[in-house]
Write a protein that binds this DNA or RNA. Structure first.
Lengths: 245, 245
DNA sequence: GGGGATCATGCTGTCAGACCGGATCAGAGC
DNA sequence: GCTCTGATCCGGTCTGACAGCATGATCCCC
């Protein structure tokens, strides 16, 4: 736990990195209490506000939590799947929106990942996963649904599929990929006809998962990917045409 | 940009959330300059240290960067793929190590994801991807290589495969999954025999990718997944036996 | 002696004010 | 017209302080 005074980085960044290393390397175990801010300040030979800034950095990544009171302090946080989801989703969303990722590329990535877990979902899906999927299909059939809500329901259906794989690690990685796509998907306006086609494919997909037919599920996802790509390209083309006017 | 004085959360957390929302929603565009710390402090009616803690939280997520000097300040950062990689890898690694994720589950997730991008890699691989894969295979053939280095080379080979898909979004998601597995993989001791088997499968995989034969690549990955699982189970069994003594 | 109310303690959360050093730019001097 | 210098802005850091909260020991009353 030393820091380099000649480093170009902030002191608080260096301190944060030092503590993060301790956590990642396992020297600081889950629920362990870090020294108090005053002790850390003395140890690193900096002032307390500097230590605090470092701790806030770690708190932003959910690596630690703080508690007030006599037995309070900073504790190494057990990173829950939910927290990890949340962080991954914001990171992925920003990455997509800030780097001019094309609809095609994002779409391809999303469906490639989903197809990876379809066979597992077909194998292990439980009744509640099927129920969630059917519920979303029902929701999507409501013509009064706004485009945003239709999209959200689409994401929910796909998350149910992903969760059906029964592998939390897989769910975690795919949740980020699927949710991060939502802003891009929101650019699409769903006509009644395209909604019908999507719902059809969703139904086929759900049926295949229920029947534990991995090949059929893959086929449905494949078609859905193709169709979504077409929709996206239409939107882009229309936009380009408008821009030319 | 308002904050709730009755919220149980820290002021700095609230301020950070408020600014983050502005960024995610697109109100603050990339490279836009935030108000100076003093102005933010006045706007939110808090002190400057509190504002600073909030900014450090955002900096920890690479959402902003700061610059000193007259025209300095906090700027909305363009989140690069590299930064996103880095964050995702630490998050994924901690998630796996802190939640007692079994080797089987992590392994299954990893290979499921990799198989998702194998067909794309077979389609689009460039000579440099193949060269990277061959280089790692050569490295792995050196018997003097430590288990850690063998693992690292394994990861490098798989990253080359993933990059071969030519889809940066896919690369981003899979990089996290593959790299996060490394600590778990490091628990395995690779005997000369198991190394030989793995190198064989790596060669078959690379050959299949070079020949643009997606089915063969999938088969090789499938076998590799199976074999890795076996290795992991042997390690666990040996460990359990030792623990019983 | 036991139980409950109360206070001391130690910690984080927040604040005010201040100095330092880096970066920029306008204006003085050549 | 160019260079150099100082003013100025702004983030990085420090000092010192107070408030709020949770714990735990203490004390008082029954």
């Amino acid at each position: 736990m030393k820091l380099d005074p000649d480093s170009p980085k902030d002191l608080s960044a260096q301190i944060a990195a030092a503590i993060r290393d301790e956590i990642v390397s396992g020297k600081l175990i889950v629920d362990a209490r870090l020294p108090s801010e005053a002790e850390l300040a003395e140890h690193f030979a900096v002032s307390r506000p500097t230590v605090r800034e470092a701790l806030k950095r770690l708190a932003a990544q959910s690596l630690i939590r703080t508690q007030r009171g006599a037995t309070g302090g900073a504790f190494v946080n057990r990173l829950s799947f939910e927290q990890a989801y949340g962080q991954q989703i914001t990171t992925s969303t920003l990455l997509l929106s800030m780097n001019a990722v094309s609809f095609d590329v994002a779409c391809e990535a999303r469906f490639a990942l989903e197809r990876a877990c379809a066979p597992l979902a077909a194998l292990r899906r439980r009744p509640d996963h099927l129920a969630r999927m059917r519920l979303e299909i029902m929701r999507q059939s409501n013509p009064a649904l706004s485009d945003e809500d239709f999209c959200a329901s689409d994401v929910a259906l796909h998350r149910a599929l992903v969760d059906g794989s029964g592998n939390p690690v897989l769910s975690y990685h795919l949740a980020g990929a699927v949710e991060a796509m939502q802003p891009l998907m929101n650019m699409i306006t769903f006509t009644a006809r395209s909604r019908g086609a999507i719902i059809d494919l969703h139904s086929r997909l759900t049926d295949a998962i229920e029947a534990q037919d991995a090949a059929a599920a893959d086929a449905a996802l494949s078609e859905l990917a193709e169709y979504t790509l077409t929709l996206g390209r239409d939107v882009m083309a229309a936009r380009a045409a408008r821009a030319q006017d």
